[in-house]
């Protein structure tokens, strides 16, 4: 029994310098599961999502490891086959809805183009699907919104449209890359609830990239904590928030704002914790180089 997405010992390096950006990352996400990827900036959490979707920057090269999507080893496939597979089963909800939508195109085609051009749907079917999806993401009056341009809509509305668009082709895996970071807290709450609702309804496997442990506790069932491209803790959400195992996880949790307990929140990460986890990464690197 294998999970829908399995990443095993994935290492990515920066071409040229050979510096490791992902350090033997392993994780699995099953159908219907939401897994959080948490870490500070530069920890490699978005990089993992990009590796899965095959959209790593040109300067980054996968050095070893495997990414299995629905049992297919992505890295062993021909690029054209890989793209076809990823395109048909996976989708992305990006962070910034304003740059992710084409400003000069109406909303309707931005949802339907993929269905028509890549998946070969008929125009009328795609249009009907778009309207249905806009209803699902609780947009009132979808017929009107479909003819609008992105700049005419609020940030929350735009994020709803990207969610609709991600779910359009019934993907079995969605990568959500900080989808609510740019939003107000009240809007964020609505969008998080919406993502959870859509995910449960469609039974999608979801990878949720975020720096906010508060958000993780609301939408995820499991999480991977990353530091410098290495998974330092992999846990079920309930276990993690009850008792995080790794010292870095504990420090991250203590640094997270918590208005109900100001004394126990927003504590700076102790330098000794950073030293210890950096040393751990260095040991892993030596072993890695030694093993090659």
């Amino acid at each position: 029994m294998s999970a829908f997405l399995e990443i095993e010992g994935l290492s990515a390096v920066l071409a040229g310098t050979g510096a490791r950006l992902l350090r033997s990352v392993s994780l699995a996400v099953d159908t219907g599961e939401v897994r959080g990827l948490v870490g500070e900036s530069g920890a490699g959490k978005s990089m993992i999502g990009k590796a899965v979707l095959g959209i790593l920057p040109k300067a980054v090269r996968v050095a070893e490891g495997a990414i299995r999507l629905d049992g297919h080893d992505l890295l062993a496939m021909r690029p054209a086959d890989r793209r076809r597979l990823i395109g048909s089963v996976a989708a992305l909800i990006p962070q910034d809805p304003l740059t992710a939508l084409n400003p000069s195109k109406r909303i309707g085609p931005q949802i339907t183009d993929r269905l028509v051009d890549i998946l070969g749907w008929g125009k009328a079917d795609a249009q009907a699907r778009a309207l249905e999806l806009l209803g699902e993401v609780h947009i009132e009056d979808p017929e009107r919104v479909i003819g609008r341009y992105p700049h005419e809509l609020s940030g929350g509305m735009r994020q709803r449209i990207l969610i609709a668009s991600a779910f359009a082709a019934e993907p079995r895996l969605i990568i959500a890359d900080e989808p609510t970071t740019a939003l107000d807290v009240t809007v964020q709450k609505q969008i998080l609830k919406l993502i959870g609702e859509m995910q449960a309804h469609h039974g999608t496997a979801l990878v949720f990239v975020t720096h906010d442990l508060g958000v993780v506790s609301k939408v995820c069932q499991s999480l991977s904590v990353l530091y410098a491209g290495k998974v330092v803790e992999d846990a079920r959400v309930a276990d993690f928030f009850a008792a995080p195992r790794h010292a870095y996880s504990r420090a991250l949790l203590a640094a997270t704002p918590k208005y109900t307990d100001p004394a126990a929140s927003l504590q700076p990460v102790d330098p000794s914790v950073i030293e210890a986890v950096t040393a751990e990464v260095a040991v892993a690197d030596r072993e890695w180089i030694h093993g090659r």
């Binding site: 009240t186 709450k189 998080l192 958000v215 506790s217 918590k258 109900t260």
Partner: peptide, 26 residues
């Protein structure tokens, strides 16, 4: 924080995701 008087303040407070899977209202 103890007793928000305005409904909007209440709304803002309730929308903050605390690092706690059992936070009520979510």
């Amino acid at each position: 924080f103890a007793e928000p008087r305005a409904a909007y303040t209440r709304q803002l407070l309730d929308a903050i995701p605390l690092p706690d899977p059992d936070q009520p209202g979510w």
